[in-house]
Design a protein around this nucleic acid. Structure first.
Lengths: 341, 341
DNA sequence: CACCACACCCAAAGCGCTTTGGGTTGGCGA
DNA sequence: TCGCCAACCCAAAGCGCTTTGGGTGTGGTG
């Protein structure tokens, strides 16, 4: 069933039927009701391909996920973000186009997307410290929103959490408990957020005249395995840490495994703080907060990012929108005073 | 830049340019080369909206994710599946349309999708025991593939793992180690896979004349919190289990936490087997297999499912494709002989 | 009564591509 | 020389919708 046929059965023109369905005022309420009833009866829905061609809008937002082979890190985070964003897209009538791109083909993918007009805007996640995507999207004149930020952040729209403050606060928390040998298990160095978190960590140490200990710092994709291996190595090595600061609950779970194997009790023998993205299946609060954590819902971020991006699409000429979210610090059972040496 | 303009600059007709770009034989190689060069130079890509309207194909595959409010369970699994499928889609030139649907609106969403022709086929994940989606998609005559299966599985295409055999084998493994009080922490009862896994578990017990113990069985969304709370309650209750069988690594991580808090050493004081979907950020092999596990890569499943679905779309009249994958059993450090009572 | 505004409705022109159904040319065999 | 077949290329007709630019009839106003 298409518009033409529907119009024919109603003895109306396509124009009128189209207008009735799309809520234009030029049609009598009675007629509109008749059209809507007929459409429903015939199970008619306008063909989205035709509609998109006619309107010139794709009503679609693109998320481009780089598959870097190893940096699966995006994975757990991006899923929850996606769900948050997807909720809003659904509500606002936008489709979500997901592109998996083998790393390096990212630029080609964006150019393609821009040239063939399959989306009205794109979401950029996990920006690198120098990230070609931002300049490219500006050049392509495609509305976009960055989750996170990087470089000179004044020229584009983004939403980010206050990483430096969060990690500075977390470090202070450990320092206040008397810890001095604090390990930082961070995400891959190339990511802007990892750099910021490290800065927060270092600033807190510096404020008390302390220096970060190189053998207690590690960067990699934020997997459980990374947390486990690094923690194990550090705990078994010289000058082991008395506390860990981890960039993700997933890393912290690996740390917990390493501690468990060594008979170390979290919160007593060893302290762990992590950043909690509030992943839905790793709820930190079940049974009382397990980990002391800075927290900020990645899903909520996804929702808000989607809202902003849709705004940007509807009114592309507005000035950049920038939102910085503070994080909460939840005290859990994974931290305690530094045991006397 | 559009086809018309490109054709004009080349002094060729739209027809010829289109054919040159799409690899039709009716155009001289020399002309084709000239066209391709010009297209590249002008950074031309055919408008996907127009192309879709003209061809009648959406070149898009839909994944519909039900948001059941609490059943976040789909979440960790679906992300890896999505990545696997997405790789194949990208390779084959298909787009991936992701729809988040609040539970219950599922039917409306499918009808909508079918009526407006925005996809050429859909992927169905995590089927319930009685799942209206399958009948609906058959009625709508939309190509689809089910990851998992349910009901009378002969009439449609699916890919599934041998859940019953996997869990029977895992249970046997524990029984062989002397365990008799084995707890089963399973996914939500409504899901077909959960039912099958339970059957495997019960069959193994029955084969040795044993009965499942109701107080040692729990079903819920497969979160870390569920694993933790159930394990804690069981361990602290009467007749605690000496072994756990968990439907997911994520649950097993919760079990590990509960054990850790109670000073129970996995593999010695308590045994744990889980099913490992090989989630990329929870690699069970890092540092030697942590958990004894039945395993099957969800990402590989995603890839294969995508291939099958694309096949189905290209040739809709072929008989149903059905694939059953066996799982591996990896012995890790989380299991050991049942400690003497 | 003429005029205008308004409410309703319509025909037709796109949107940018693919594809049908020819045309035109050049070469080759008869 | 003619006819015919490839090899190339083209004009134009869709695909199914939105939207422009009127048309028609009714009621109110001067």
């Amino acid at each position: 069933m298409n518009l033409k046929e529907l119009a024919a059965t109603l003895n109306l023109s396509q124009t009128t039927v189209s207008r009735a369905l799309n809520g234009y005022p030029e049609v009598r309420e009675e007629t509109r009701a008749r059209v809507l009833a007929a459409a429903k009866a015939a199970n008619y829905a306008p063909n989205s391909r035709a509609r998109r061609l006619a309107t010139g809008r794709a009503m679609t937002i693109g998320h481009v996920i780089p598959l870097t082979g190893r940096a699966e890190m995006v994975n757990p985070i991006f899923a929850d973000f996606l769900i948050g964003a997807g909720e809003v897209y659904a509500r606002e009538g936008y489709d979500l186009l997901l592109s998996m791109v083998t790393d390096g083909d990212s630029e080609a993918a964006f150019r393609q997307i821009a040239a063939n007009g399959s989306v009205d805007g794109v979401m950029v996640q996990a920006p690198q410290i120098t990230d070609p995507r931002i300049g490219l999207l500006q050049e392509l004149d495609l509305p976009f929103l960055v989750h996170g930020r990087t470089g000179d952040a004044r020229g584009y729209s983004w939403l980010d959490i206050a990483n430096i403050r969060a990690f500075r606060r977390a470090t202070d928390f450990l320092l206040d408990l008397g810890h001095r040998r604090i390990a930082l298990l961070n995400g891959q160095e190339g990511f802007d957020f990892a750099q910021r978190r490290r800065r927060g960590f270092e600033e807190a140490l510096a404020a008390r005249g302390l220096c970060p200990l190189p053998h207690l710092m590690a960067n990699d994709a934020m997997t459980e395995g990374f947390g486990y291996l690094s923690a194990a190595a550090m705990l078994d090595g010289p000058e082991p840490p008395t506390a860990f600061l981890a960039s993700s609950v997933i890393i912290a779970i690996g740390i917990r495994r390493a501690c468990g194997e060594r008979g170390l009790r979290m919160g007593r023998d060893i302290s762990v703080i992590c950043h909690d993205d509030e992943l839905s299946y790793l709820n930190n609060d079940v049974g009382g907060p397990a980990f002391t954590a800075t927290r900020s819902s990645i899903r909520a971020a996804g929702r808000r990012c989607a809202e902003i991006l849709i705004d940007l699409i509807r009114d592309p000429d507005q000035p950049p929108v920038q939102e910085l979210w503070e994080t909460d610090l939840t005290v859990g059972r994974s931290t305690g005073p530094c045991p006397a040496a």
